[in-house]
C-alpha cells in the first residue's frame, strides 16, 4: 500500500491504542482468574504464580453445580429465544420488505417502541403473572420475556437486509419452470440466509447478556442464567469473597463471545450498521 513511514507509524500507534482500549478490562479479569487466593489482594495486575485453582473450583469443584447448570440454562434459553425470534422476525421482515399491506409502519413502530422499553417496568408484573401460572423459575418463563429483547431488533435488521435482496432472482427462477418450493430453496434461501444468520448472532448476544430478567424471574438452578449466577457465587463459607471463582466463570462465558466475534466480525458489523442507520 502507498503509505508513508509516518502514516505507518501512526496507524501502528492507533491500532495499539484501540486494542488496549478494547481488550484491557478483559485481560484484567483474565489475569485475576489465574491468581491463587492469597494473591488476590496484592494489588498487582499479573498473578505471581499462575494457577488453575479457580477454574477447578467452577468446573469440577464446589461451584460446579451452580456454574455448569447456569451455563446450560444460558445456552439453552438464549438459543431457543434466538431461534424463535429469528423465525418470527424472518416472516415479519419478509412481509414488510416484499408485500404491500396496511399496518407495515405500525409493526415497525411497535418494534421500535418495544426495543426502547424499560425492562424493569415489565419485570414486576411478569413475576407476578409467572408465579400465578407456574412459569416462575422455568425456561419458558425466561424465553418469553427474552423475545421482547430479541424480536424488535431482529425485525429491524432483517427488514433492512431483505430490502436489499434482488428479488428478481426469485421470479426468474419461477419463470425458469422451478416450482415455488424449488424457487424458494434455490433462490431465496441462499439470498436470505446470511441476513438471518447475522440477525440471529446479534439476537443471541442480547439474550446472552440479560441480567434483570435472569435475577428476577428465576431462583434456582432450574433456570438461572449465567449473569445471574455470577452475582450469586460464593466462597468457602458464605462470608468469603468468591473473587477468584467469579473471574474464572467470567472468562469462561466470555470465550464464546470472543470466538463468535473472531469468526463473524464482518457479518456482525454489517448487521448492526444496516439495521441501524439507513438513508
Amino acid at each position: 500500500m502507498g503509505l508513508t513511514t509516518k502514516q505507518k507509524v501512526w496507524w501502528a500507534v492507533i491500532t495499539v491504542v484501540v486494542l488496549v482500549y478494547a481488550l484491557f478490562p478483559v485481560a484484567a479479569i483474565a489475569a485475576t482468574s489465574f491468581k491463587i487466593p492469597s494473591e488476590l489482594d496484592n494489588g498487582r495486575f499479573l498473578p505471581g504464580t499462575w494457577s488453575l485453582i479457580n477454574y477447578e473450583q467452577i468446573l469440577v469443584g464446589d461451584a460446579q453445580s451452580l456454574f455448569l447448570s447456569s451455563l446450560r440454562n444460558s445456552i439453552g434459553i438464549s438459543l431457543i429465544a434466538t431461534a424463535i425470534a429469528a423465525v418470527l422476525a424472518t416472516l415479519a421482515a419478509y412481509a414488510i420488505a416484499r408485500l404491500d399491506f396496511p399496518g407495515k409502519r405500525l409493526i415497525l413502530t411497535t418494534a421500535l417502541a418495544v426495543s426502547i422499553f424499560p425492562v424493569i417496568s415489565i419485570v414486576t408484573p411478569l413475576f407476578n403473572l409467572w408465579r400465578t401460572i407456574g412459569l416462575y423459575d422455568t425456561w419458558p418463563g425466561l424465553i418469553i420475556p427474552y423475545l421482547s429483547l430479541t424480536l424488535p431488533i431482529s425485525i429491524w435488521i432483517l427488514t433492512a437486509f431483505f430490502r436489499q435482496i434482488p428479488w428478481e432472482l426469485e421470479q426468474a427462477a419461477q419463470v425458469d419452470g422451478a416450482t415455488t418450493w424449488q424457487a424458494f430453496r434455490k433462490a431465496i434461501v441462499p439470498l436470505a440466509a446470511p441476513g438471518v444468520f447475522t440477525t440471529a448472532l446479534i439476537a443471541f448476544f442480547i439474550a446472552w447478556n440479560d441480567f434483570v430478567y435472569g435475577i428476577s424471574l428465576t431462583s434456582t438452578e432450574a433456570a438461572r442464567p449465567v449473569p445471574a449466577a455470577l452475582a450469586f457465587f460464593t466462597g468457602a463459607s458464605q462470608f468469603e469473597e468468591p473473587t477468584g471463582s467469579i473471574s474464572a466463570a467470567a472468562v469462561v462465558v466470555t470465550i464464546p463471545v470472543v470466538v463468535l466475534v473472531l469468526l463473524f466480525q464482518r457479518q456482525i458489523v454489517a448487521g448492526l450498521t444496516q439495521g441501524a442507520v439507513k438513508g
Binding site: 478490562p25 448476544f205 449465567v226 449473569p227 455470577l230 470472543v258 466475534v261
Partner: peptide, 9 residues
C-alpha cells in the same frame, strides 16, 4: 469484544 461481552462480566 466490549460490545459482545456480558455487562455483568
Amino acid at each position: 469484544v466490549p460490545y459482545g461481552i456480558i455487562t455483568v462480566v
